[in-house]
Design a protein around this nucleic acid. Sequence first.
DNA 1: AGGGTGAGTAGACACTGTCTACCCGCCGCC
DNA 2: GGCGGCGGGTAGACAGTGTCTACTCACCCT
Lengths: 192, 192
Amino acid sequence: MSERHTGLRTRLIDVGVELVTAEGVQALSLREIARRAGVSHGAPRRYFPTHLELLSAIARRGFEELAGRGVAAIGDGTASPREQIATLGRVYLDFALANRGMHELMFRHDLLESNRLGLREASMPIFGLLVDLVGRARPGVDARLVAGALLANLYGIAQLWAWGSLQLTTGADDFAPLLNAALEAHLGSEER
Amino acid sequence: MSERHTGLRTRLIDVGVELVTAEGVQALSLREIARRAGVSHGAPRRYFPTHLELLSAIARRGFEELAGRGVAAIGDGTASPREQIATLGRVYLDFALANRGMHELMFRHDLLESNRLGLREASMPIFGLLVDLVGRARPGVDARLVAGALLANLYGIAQLWAWGSLQLTTGADDFAPLLNAALEAHLGSEER
DNA sequence: AGGGTGAGTAGACACTGTCTACCCGCCGCC
DNA sequence: GGCGGCGGGTAGACAGTGTCTACTCACCCT
């Protein structure tokens, strides 16, 4: 009973975001979130009928945050499409590796597979932006196909890097070479 | 008490493999595996001190199965490196999409991040094979880097395809175009 | 004033992973 | 040939989880 008279719904999401970035995705139990929000374990049910819906709401915050960072980094969009894509890739990998718990949550199978939870829609705008940029960077190719392949590549790099396999196998200690390799592969070499 | 006097250790893994392919990764509770193996819930503990170790043993089966299919598909290795890589990619994506539960288990963060469980080693040989083929297909480049990027790409395609996002965004109904796009991107176009 | 309702509490239930005490049958050993 | 030890498995307890349900309680509107 202080100034936390904000709606419990948003407070639960706030607590979840803090918790997942601080302690990882396995710490996101319904009861622990309720505990940290200062309510009983049954309270969240009024706003989120099931645990997965609460997790999805937290994951949506992640997508919004990521999209925000993306458009902020692109700025006024005067750079070349190629450079904007590279910026997006860097922002994405930075985000994924700095917020591993959130990134893992955002791409959890059980959340994404249920269309009811709106995660698909939350990730759409940023993918649409990528498709647009790819179309301008490489006119004449199937932009959605190339953008899909590039997105898959970035996602795979984030995942494999997160658990250290790629460090061991590629010998590098930061992901820039991998990112550049992926960009060159899908978009052509730096100087056309 | 029939002919199941085979060691409980391997029987637990067998049951786990059946269970994960039939009902998915969330069905792999320790107690359910023990139940289906016909033993009490405390029995697995003698062979697998913790639940994660049992899961890792099941996942290792997955890596062995995948590696087996890979070398079987490559055959005597007379095809060009490029074609062998394409074959490996197809085998991998087929496997991942036909055995989603097993694929999800094989790349679970909590399993891979703990080096104690030997999953890293289980996935090494097949990656080494890929590095070798990439080195022969594209002499002069950093084979480990390109192979890492390609592997990340394949993994990303498997993941994103599994939960349907790429169908929606690329409009395709099988993954061959995406696979070809990735191969061309990382290895150069079909006819050099 | 008083009924109704939205918001949160508290307890039960089935289930999970881990730990511990027990038990039973088989093996080697003196 | 009896016997001790022990590998391999059982059964119960414990804390924790998600879901469901009965309930309380403050507030609002007429």
